[in-house]
């Protein structure tokens, strides 16, 4: 059975390929050497350097990034939940249009969304800044929340609604006490996805940002581009990685919980 070993070998090599750069980065964030060509000893000085007053702009960018991520996921959670319910419960021409409208922003290259929003804002004479970034992020996050909540709705046992009505619940009570609690894991998972996508986004933000509205990915990008303070980037990235892993781990627990419940 030669054929059954080849896929496993490819798999193993791909895992190495996937992790080498990340591990390299993490290891080097503790490297004494300024250039990552040699290992000269363990240090935490790059992490300490992040707290230098001269790096205050990094923290400002972080704050802005988090503010944008939290607000855009909050808005997208509402928009996405509403549209997922519309798509799930209605089979009309309007929903067919809605469906295409929701999926297009997910499919087209983010570059196109960025440039078209920039042209739109320029044409309207809107000042670019945190608000335009927020609008752009909500625009792509709402679609992702819709997709996640829609997936949760597909495993939804409709008879539960009838059961609640049967036991004396009005429509509003059904929404509040049955539908929302049942969708909650999906909505939260969608929100977490939005949060990570928003924090992750470079391309769209790059187009719609204005002077003084730098986000963390923009900041990191310019540091990388100009090969400035590479060890600092290693340190930031490592912190970034740890935080993302924690969020992913949490959201995975949520989705696991939801699969257990649906059985």
């Amino acid at each position: 059975m030669k054929s059954s070993r080849l896929p496993a070998i490819v798999f193993a090599l791909v895992i190495v390929f996937l992790y080498v750069p990340i591990l390299f980065l993490v290891v080097n964030s503790f490297n004494e050497a300024r250039f990552s060509s040699t290992w000269t000893g363990f240090t935490l000085k790059w992490y300490a350097a992040l707290f230098n007053p001269q790096n205050r702009d990094l923290w400002e960018a972080t704050q802005r990034t988090l503010l944008i991520a939290v607000s855009s996921s909050a808005v997208s959670m509402i928009l996405g939940t509403l549209s997922a319910c519309a798509l799930h419960w209605y089979r009309t021409k309007l929903q067919r249009l809605n469906y295409g409208m929701i999926y297009l922003p997910v499919i087209i290259p983010d570059l196109l969304m960025g440039i078209s929003l920039l042209l739109f804002f320029v044409a309207l004479g809107v000042t670019l800044g945190t608000v335009t970034i927020l609008i752009a992020h909500i625009t792509f996050c709402a679609s992702f929340v819709t997709v996640v909540v829609l997936g949760r709705l597909q495993g939804f046992d409709e008879s539960v609604i009838a059961a609640a009505r049967d036991l004396g619940a009005t429509r509003w009570v059904v929404i509040r006490r049955v539908i929302l609690p049942l969708l909650a894991p999906g909505i939260v998972a969608g929100g977490l996805l939005s949060f990570t996508l928003s924090v992750d986004d470079y391309v769209i933000t790059f187009f719609v940002t204005g002077p003084g509205s730098t986000t963390l990915p923009l900041k990191i990008y310019s540091m990388v581009k100009h090969s400035r303070e590479l060890p600092l980037i290693n340190a930031i990235s490592t912190i970034f990685l740890v935080v993302t892993f924690l969020i992913v781990w949490w959201s995975q627990n949520l989705t696991r919980d939801q699969t257990v419940r649906s059985h």
């Binding site: 046992d157 008879s159 539960v160 009838a162 059961a163 609640a164 009505r165 049967d166 036991l167 004396g168 619940a169 009005t170 006490r177 049955v178 609690p181 049942l182 909650a184 419940r261 649906s262």
Partner: peptide, 29 residues
């Protein structure tokens, strides 16, 4: 309307509320 009728249903697939405990399911009505 169904919520006002003095009748209750035992559903074919039970239709228990998956997010509530058995106690909370029974206390729902």
């Amino acid at each position: 309307p169904p919520e006002k009728r003095p009748v209750n249903t035992v559903f074919q697939n039970y239709a228990l509320f998956p997010h509530l405990t058995l106690r909370q399911n029974i206390a729902f009505g």
